[in-house]
C-alpha cells in the first residue's frame, strides 16, 4: 500500500501546475460570484459550473493518457520500476494520484459551489453528492484512458477513451436504457450538466458504485496489460 501512496502523492506533486491552473478557474468562478449581477448571476454561475465539470473530465482524460507515457519519455520510470514494486502497484499509484488531483479540484469546486450556488437556492447535500459523482466520472474516465494508454500512444488513448465513453452516451440519448450502465460517464454527468434551479439533481448512488467497480476493473486491466508489455523508454 505504501508504494501506491508514494507514487500517488508524487504524481499529484508533479501535476501541481495543471492543478493550479484548474483551481484558478474555480477562483475566477468565485470572483465572478462576488461581482455578478443579481439578475443574471444564478444562470451564469450555473453555466460556469457546467464548464468546470466538463473541464475536470477532460483533465481526467489527459492525465490518464499521459501518466505512463510522460514517465517513459523522461526515463524516470526506470528508477521507479527498478525498485521493489510491481507494475500493478505502479499503475494503481498513478490512478490514485490522478484521483487525488481531481479530488482536490472537485472538493474546491464543491466548496465554492456550496457558497455560490447555495446562495441561489441549491441544496448543499445534493451539490456535494454531485461533486462525488463528478469525481467518480473523472476517475472513471482517467482509468479507462490509463488502460488504453498501456498499449496506445497518448493521443489515441485519449481519443479512444472519448469514443468508448461517448458510444453509451449516444445510445442513451437514442433511448437505450441499459447503455447508461456501460461506462456510465454520461449517466453520471448528465444530471450535473442538465441541472437547473427548478430541478434538483438526481445522480444515482447505484451508478456511482457501478462506476467505481468499473474503475477497479479498468485498473486491473491496465495493470495486467502493462505488466506484460516491454518498457519502451526514449534514448537520449
Amino acid at each position: 500500500m505504501r508504494p501506491i501512496v508514494l507514487i500517488a502523492t508524487n504524481f499529484a506533486r508533479e501535476q501541481r501546475w495543471p492543478l493550479f491552473f484548474l483551481l484558478l478557474w474555480v477562483v475566477g468562478w468565485a470572483t465572478f460570484g462576488i461581482f455578478a449581477d443579481p439578475r443574471s448571476g444564478p444562470d451564469d454561475a450555473l453555466m460556469i459550473f457546467r464548464q468546470l465539470a466538463v473541464y475536470s473530465v477532460t483533465f481526467g482524460l489527459f492525465f490518464g493518457s499521459s501518466a505512463i507515457h510522460s514517465d517513459q519519455r523522461s526515463r524516470r520510470i526506470l528508477a521507479v520500476l527498478s525498485k521493489g514494486i510491481s507494475r500493478g502497484q505502479y499503475v494503481a499509484g498513478l490512478l490514485a494520484g490522478i484521483a487525488l488531483v481531481l479530488g482536490i479540484f472537485c472538493f474546491c469546486m464543491g466548496f465554492t459551489a456550496s457558497w455560490l450556488l447555495g446562495r441561489y437556492g441549491f441544496s448543499e447535500s445534493a451539490m456535494w453528492f454531485g461533486m462525488l459523482a463528478l469525481w467518480t466520472v473523472c476517475t472513471l474516465t482517467a482509468s479507462l484512458t490509463l488502460l488504453l494508454s498501456t498499449f496506445l500512444p497518448p493521443l489515441f488513448a485519449a481519443i479512444g477513451a472519448g469514443v468508448l465513453a461517448g458510444i453509451p452516451a449516444l445510445l442513451a440519448l437514442r433511448g437505450d436504457t441499459f447503455s447508461k450502465y456501460v461506462i456510465p460517464v454520461h449517466g453520471l454527468l448528465e444530471p450535473l450538466i442538465g441541472a437547473d434551479f427548478a430541478e434538483s439533481w438526481n445522480a444515482s448512488i447505484g451508478l456511482v458504485l457501478l462506476a467505481w467497480i468499473e474503475v477497479a476493473v479498468f485498473s486491473l486491466g491496465a495493470a495486467w496489460i502493462f505488466s506484460r508489455r516491454d518498457l519502451s523508454v526514449s534514448v537520449e
Binding site: 526515463r75 526506470l78 525498485k83
Partner: peptide, 17 residues
C-alpha cells in the same frame, strides 16, 4: 519485484523526479 528490493540499479542517462 521482491528481489529488486535487494538490488540497486542505475540507468544510463539517469532521470529523477
Amino acid at each position: 519485484a521482491g528481489t529488486r528490493r535487494r538490488v540497486g540499479f542505475l540507468a544510463e542517462n539517469v532521470s529523477l523526479y
